[in-house]
Design a protein around this nucleic acid. Structure first.
Length: 396
RNA sequence: GCUGAGGUGGCGGAGUGGACAAUCGCAACAGUCUGUAAAACUGUCGCCCUACCGGGCUACCCAGGUUCGAAUCCUGGCCUCAGCACCA
């Protein structure tokens, strides 16, 4: 698959106005102005957020004029696309801090040396009220009100601030100011990105494009999100990341290869073929996990994580696994109940909970089920306490 | 400022004097099953004591009060939302 075809299809849900027109533009060899805007509120990125970042990076690698735009000014309003309520206003210090945190993670995917980083306050701040009125003229309030979330809020009698109407106007102006050819974003951004097309057309008589990326499903199949606790974070430790990938539903393997790794499309097609041919999905999932950890950490760490996964989960041999260690305080070193040891190891939030876990047959000491909470054990170095999926090693 | 609605466990949302540690749904956790899958099924899910039975304590925005007894009633306060008014 050639680079252009990949740009047009990989992880792409929708292209506006038209895929073939965009293809023609991409073939023209013109250096295009491409940008992705981010809202400087979220500081922790998961691999779903990374999908548009990958797309942006792909454009950067091909030598286009790529901008990573920080919506510091639009943050004054807060995007209405993905939240059902208004956002708190952020100070510029916090915005900058957020960006630094963001960048630290994002640079695992996006080569910042090839992109320009800008803040939209640079131009939005300078607009006079008159300018805003003229800009607002290009948009219809009806479009805004008919957006699903806005409609919902209105029918529920919730507050919808007038300033929220200005969000798409501002984003549209971003696009116009930078003379954008292509905007990248999630499908949830489609409405806002449309605003950019409107201004480019009305004010500059220029056709511009939107590439809307699809969403990556979380480890449980729902949309990846913090609240569902089903996200794989860019900052996840190698072992944890590996394990999370392994707990994916099999049906998600191809999607993850496509959206969350930079494996070539040929490789992805190959994976598809192998799955259809009936190869054990687990084997392929291991490859996926290895690939992902390699990209986000390193090959060495991926190898280690795979090995750890093998001994720890597949063989169930915890003695070989790389477990966190805990040491018991002197008061408990001569003897302690399993409950006390669990509390020391942070394996339960309260003694009640620890007791519950024992009752539920979740607790093992050196592979032997512990059934009596009050029994006194003399722990020694190397003892392994296993609680459900978690395990720790005792160190004296 | 006025009028109305409302503040319950991680979230949603019941309950409107005793049967409430608080229905139910979601999330979470554990077990069975497996490929550490997923799905399904079962169980747990305020804190503390207890091998099981069971017991104690603290809780429904805050502070008082009424009552044998309050998440539920009364008084005061704080906060949220909406509509209206006023000011700019």
């Amino acid at each position: 698959m050639d680079a252009i075809e990949e740009l047009l299809t990989r992880g792409v849900e929708n292209i506006i106005p038209d895929k073939e027109k965009l293809r023609k533009l991409l073939m023209s060899d013109r250096k295009l102005n491409v940008y992705l805007g981010i809202d400087p509120t979220a500081t922790k990125i998961h691999i779903g957020h990374a999908v548009p970042l990958r797309k942006l990076n792909a454009f950067a690698q091909l030598g286009h004029n790529v901008t990573f735009l920080i919506g510091d000014f639009t943050a004054l309003i807060g995007d209405t696309s993905d939240k059902e309520s208004e956002r708190p206003v952020l100070t510029s210090a916090i915005i900058e801090e957020n960006f630094q945190t963001y960048k630290q993670q994002a640079q695992k995917i996006l080569d910042f040396s090839k992109v320009k980083v800008r803040h939209n306050s640079e131009w939005l701040k300078k607009l006079a009220f008159e300018d805003i009125i003229r800009l607002a003229y290009h948009f219809s309030a009806g479009d805004f009100y008919s957006r699903e979330l806005i409609k919902k809020r209105l029918t529920e009698g919730l507050h919808v601030g007038l300033h929220e109407l200005l969000y798409p106007v501002m984003q549209g102006y971003d696009s116009y100011f930078m003379d954008t050819d292509i905007q990248i974003g999630g499908t949830d951004q489609t409405f806002n990105m449309q605003a950019g097309r409107v201004l480019q057309k009305d004010l500059r008589n220029k056709e511009s494009f939107i590439i809307a990326n699809g969403f990556l499903e979380g480890t449980d199949g729902r949309k990846m999100s913090k609240t569902w606790n089903n996200a794989i974070w860019l900052t996840d430790e190698p072992n944890e990341m590996f394990a999370k990938v392994m707990s994916l539903r099999d049906e998600l393997i191809v999607e993850y290869f496509t959206l969350a790794t930079s494996a070539s499309m040929e490789d992805v097609a190959d994976v598809k073929k192998r799955l259809v041919a009936g190869e054990n999905p687990m084997t392929i999932k291991i490859e996926l996990a290895h690939q992902l950890v390699t990209e986000l950490h390193s090959k060495t760490l991926a190898d280690a994580a795979q090995k750890d996964f093998g001994v720890r989960f597949q063989k169930g041999d915890l003695t070989q696994a790389n477990l966190p260690t805990i040491s018991l305080p002197p008061t408990l070193s001569s003897g302690a109940t399993i409950i006390e040891a669990m509390m020391e190891g942070n394996m339960a939030e309260s003694r009640s909970e620890a007791r519950q876990l024992v009752k539920q047959k979740a607790v093992k000491l050196n592979d032997t089920l512990v059934t009596v909470p009050s029994e006194i054990h003399t722990f020694k170095t190397g003892d392994i306490i296993k609680v459900g999926r978690k395990a720790v090693k005792i160190k004296k």
